[in-house]
Design a protein around this nucleic acid. Structure first.
Lengths: 254, 254
DNA sequence: ATCGCTATTTGTCTGACTAATTATAGACGA
DNA sequence: TCGTCTATAATTAGTCAGACAAATAGCGAT
């Protein structure tokens, strides 16, 4: 039993792929996914630090740092003698980028997708309205550039999807409201998965680019109400498409 | 230099009061407040772990766990050789309950209060509408109970303010949308500070209880649009009052 | 039913070693 | 001579190990 990590070509190992660089991060990720995917239920008590760290072939301190990360995100809570237990879902930081990523790591439930869309539906139209009032020229340029990129690459490519996210992200930024901007990660996640689902159906139901331009035009023209309506339409259609894709997936095969 | 903590009646000490029980939590709190209050600016590099932990009279491992917490909330980022530096504000988890608490620990800026109110203005009316559609009887009862409590204790007491928060919290819960519910801590923070500011002016500008009942009635009657409008009015008035109180505070004395 | 004890578990400390990465100085080529 | 690329060194976070402290849940005695 040498020192260094021991990650060699031995026999058994666990977390392996999808490493997060640092070991505590990767452990946090592994446990985080296990928790949000329901492998551990709220109320469940994790193994004690000694056993758990041993089982994962890491030092106790590395394991503890991972637990601190999860605790900071509200996923677990630990107390002496009581152990570390999974917190009730209501305490989870569902809008945290990492937590969200962990959710999507294991095929999020339909209900979760739906609620994320609902959030978009609430936040984005108002955000667009604020953006129409407050955007500066530089932000407007970035939105335009994003849409052009999106047009060139199409949503079938990662570059195109990134441009899509950039657009929505910039709208949030243009609201000049920091807490609102924080939601961009969640919105971004919803956007990404909307697109992925739509892409699974070969025929992408509708070309969303004209709808994006309408939002852009309203923001460019500094017309809040118009921007709100355009965004409402855009998000609503995305929601419909996702719903349809999901229905087709679970309902009947091709 | 004995072992145990050394928190005795010695000479100098730092973090002291406001302890969070566990030491790593209290360090995280101390640093967290220092960061959100601007004592450390984004981009600033913290002392290396050895020096920092020494200066705080804690072990390196405890200090490191604190840093993991801050990193999990997006406040800092650390890399070997580069050190631990404060992340750009855009990465901060502004809606995290603890981060929010740290903000309010050091008199939040007017701009921050405003943006939080803006968020309320966006989220709560829609939430009320959803709640009107989806609330169950138990939740409705909790809302009613909260308002009665609020009426009895008035907003001058902590019990009354807690009831106020309970009401808004239950509305969020009744939306049956988990990500939305996550925002309750942020909303709650805004609610709490609205009230505190209003209370500073002796004459509380307006009795908000009737407005609360209007929201309740609409939710009870399952009328989404009515609930949305009532909540819009309620939050709008709160916003006005807070603005007025702030203006009076910074503008001219009594 | 209450109180006090004990065993378990997290929390903290120490100190050493590892690994990553920046920065520096040097070699090489334009 | 200047610029660029490359090995090397120095710094810092990351990991590990094992011991001890503190808190508390659960149990047994009263």
């Amino acid at each position: 039993m040498v020192k260094g990590k021991g990650s060699g070509a031995d026999g058994e190992f666990e977390r392996e792929e999808g490493f997060s660089g640092r070991i505590h991060g990767s452990i946090a990720r592994t446990l985080g996914i296990a928790i949000v995917s329901g492998q551990y239920a709220p109320g469940d008590v994790l193994n004690n630090e000694i056993d758990a760290s041993e089982k994962l072939h890491v030092s106790r301190s590395a394991y503890r740092e991972a637990i601190r990360i999860l605790a900071a995100k509200g996923l677990v809570e630990s107390r002496p003698k009581a152990g570390t237990r999974v917190s009730p879902r209501s305490r989870w930081s569902l809008l945290d980028p990492e937590v969200l990523a962990w959710f999507f790591e294991a095929e999020p439930s339909e209900a979760f997708l739906t609620s994320l869309h609902e959030l978009r539906m609430i936040v984005e139209p108002s955000a667009a309205a604020l953006a129409a009032e407050r955007r500066n020229d530089e932000q407007l340029e970035r939105m335009r550039a994003a849409l052009i990129q999106m047009q060139q690459h199409t949503l079938a490519t990662e570059a195109g999807r990134a441009a899509d996210r950039d657009f929505h992200d910039t709208v949030l930024e243009a609201t000049d409201n920091e807490p609102l901007r924080t939601l961009s990660s969640s919105i971004g996640a919803a956007v990404r998965w909307t697109t992925i689902f739509k892409q699974r159906d070969r025929e992408l139901a509708r070309d969303p680019i004209p709808d994006h331009w309408k939002v852009f035009d309203a923001i460019a023209a500094s017309r809040p109400d118009q921007a709100r309506q355009a965004m409402e339409r855009l998000v609503g259609l995305a929601q419909d498409d996702t719903r349809a894709a999901i229905a087709r997936r679970s309902g009947g095969a091709t």
